[in-house]
């Protein structure tokens, strides 16, 4: 009984200590921003690769994925142009793939749920079964936090 009582006291103390640790981590603004920074970078990295990927044989799923990873104006434009994109991919027998070389968050507004990033990708595009042509894409990207995570709201080429 005494052993059990001691264990109970220790268990309560351990719970209290972990609880305090959790609470203080949750209150820590810096930790929240750091977590958000990593979340937006991961989501936008995946989204940019997806937005540069299409295969005319799986075009419907690829374009659905574009719509899924985007939001705002870009999302509306992409879903509006869906059929156009499908026809174009089919007509030119396009296969495009991309590799992300590097990306960084340049601005992050934790409260508003908006971010800006810079990213560099190598994009390979092939049409009509020709060997793919590779080009390097330097992009500035805007992202917004939605109910279903961070999504890309704008992508611009960072100049010539």
């Amino acid at each position: 009984m005494r052993v059990l009582a001691t264990l109970a006291v220790l268990a309560v103390l351990a719970a209290g200590w972990s609880g305090w640790s959790w609470w203080s981590a949750a209150q820590d603004e810096g930790l929240a921003v750091a977590g958000e920074r990593d979340a937006v970078l991961a989501a936008v990295s995946d989204a940019l690769v997806a937005l540069h990927t299409i295969d005319h044989r799986t075009a419907a799923a690829d374009v659905d994925r574009w719509v899924e990873v985007s939001t705002g104006r870009l999302g509306a434009d992409l879903s509006g142009d869906r059929q156009l994109q499908l026809d174009r991919a089919e007509g030119t027998k396009t296969v495009a793939t991309a590799t992300l070389l590097d990306a960084a968050v340049t601005e992050l507004d934790h409260e508003a749920g908006t971010a800006r990033l810079g990213a560099v990708l190598d994009v390979r595009v092939s049409a009509h079964g020709d060997p793919p042509a590779e080009h390097r894409s330097r992009l500035t990207v805007a992202a917004e936090r939605t109910e279903r995570g961070w999504k890309v709201s704008d992508v611009q080429a960072a100049g010539p």
Binding site: A8, A11, V12, A15, W17, S18, G19, S21, W22, S24
Partner: peptide, 17 residues
């Protein structure tokens, strides 16, 4: 019960933290 719940809560909060 207190021991089991205490350890459970400690582990959970520790993982969350």
């Amino acid at each position: 019960a207190v021991v089991v719940l205490g350890i459970g809560a400690a582990v959970w909060a520790g993982l969350e933290a």
